[in-house]
Amino acid sequence: MNGASGFEIFWWAVIPYVALAIFVIGHVWRYRYDQFGWTTRSTELQEKRWLRWGGPIFHYATFLAIGGHVIGILVPASWTKAIGISEPVYRWFAAAAGTVAVVGVLVGVAILAGRRIFVTRVRATTSPVDWFILILLLVEIVLGFAMTTVVNLLGAGYNYRATVSVWFRSLFAGSPNVHAIASAPVLYQIHVSLAWLIVAAWPFTRLVHAWSAPVWYMWRPFVVYRSRRANRPNEPGTSGRRWRRIGVRY
């Protein structure tokens, strides 16, 4: 870390850890206190014609993009080289596949944002957090598009695996390589910074629904029976599930 300015250390080493801490603690907190709020808050009842396209396109492209991030950031360049994939080949592949993903996400989020803005019924159910996270995702995706398509597919290209990825992995090794990220282009730096904001905001938004992906449904018996279990009675007046507002007595 020698040679890095205090600001750089704060921005590229402290903020990430803080964001991760908020992410973990926030999820534990929300899961324990707000089971009732833990939902997709689907708006399909209100509007379906746009969602039919926007929902699937956005989600499938997002999964593709998440997969791409795993390959590009978590897998070191030396590994891909070891199996015989040279840097130019890798870049062309990543830029092409990445473009498919990012265009999908972009179209998807545009449809979703469009229906939130223009369909009155959907707009009326949209809370400030929904706006916040949707706009954040929108900006992040536009930046992603600029990097993947404009820089890497159509432009000169940038080997982020030598800087951004190295720094990202170093965070988890416990010794943040601030130099690596500090030398990356501003575009990449903004994208990464916003990503930490998303990570920190995640537990407090509807994005928590992602962790409840009901894969288990594939194997469980169709009809679920439950008997009355012995349970501790709820705290009087709380209905047992509501958010406990700090400083507010029920």
């Binding site: 709020g37 009326a124 159910t125 809370s127 957090v129 407090f204 938004t205 509807r206 509501r242 507002r245």
Partner: peptide, 21 residues
């Protein structure tokens, strides 16, 4: 007491869309 559930993230939700509908 409040009867209805508050949508979204409760802490930030005060005075949100709720008020409009």
């Amino acid at each position: 007491p409040e009867r209805e559930a508050v949508p979204g993230f409760h802490l930030l939700d005060e005075g949100s869309a709720d008020a409009s509908v």
